[in-house]
Amino acid sequence: MSAAVNAPAVALPAVALKDVRKSYGPLEVLKGVSFDVAPGEVVAIIGASGSGKSTALRCINGLESIQAGSIEVCGHHVGTQRSDAELRALRQDVGIVFQSYNLFPHLTVEQNVTLAPRRVKRIGNAAAKDLARACLAQVGLAEKADSYPEQLSGGQQQRVAIARSLAMQPKVMLFDEVTSALDPHLTGEVLRVMEKLARDGMTMITVTHEMGFARRVANRTIFMRDGLVWEVGGAEMFAAPRTPELQSFLGSEL
């Protein structure tokens, strides 16, 4: 499998998973997952539910522990043992956006965005305000700074969640099915923000059901099945899948 997952040898990968294994009790959900993501690359992970794609993503920023293998992220090593301090250092470089937004409901949009920079990076109030304005402008929501999350639509909330992650100036962004909880007519605004991020050179790994997005925006797409990387390829993979499993998966998705 590893032969199919070659990153260019010139640049050190931003993210590298090597033979990652993860079990919940007797159930092995990742059975030796390996792939590299180059800096500035956009990678989509597709696959049926239960294929391990979200778990793989969550392992990258230490939300899930791994039982074997290793993960290198921007110079941070994630092994089977990790300390809280190491995790926090890692998470300063890796942002994640969740399916259910997980905004802080008791804080305004601006406070949601500035909380981590103020607490973790200890930047001042004025600088935090400027940062929030810049990040919210990036997702097209500068005018919503004083709203509470509940007053926003799902698409807007998800864009705030992206801005909240961007405020920490991560080197890698993880997206965990970020449009799956949205009404179909709201997915477009979120995907457009992600496309813009990709064009601006952000390293992105996105677990998604949006095949159109994967084909159009991702440099490479990883198809996962049964806790394994089953097939990897560019946009051409969607037209000409090599494995019958991907073919039938794409047939069921489209």
């Binding site: 998470r91 300063q92 969740f98 997980n102 802080f104 008791h106 909380l115 981590a116 607490r119």
Partner: peptide, 28 residues
């Protein structure tokens, strides 16, 4: 639980997540 998760994914310490995210919501 996802509130603590989101806070810790932003590199907040467990205590910071508790004070800034969990406690205000719990107080309500």
């Amino acid at each position: 639980r996802t509130q603590r998760e989101a806070a810790e994914c932003l590199a907040l310490t467990r205590w910071q997540a508790f004070v800034d995210v969990i406690l205000p919501q719990a107080a309500r």
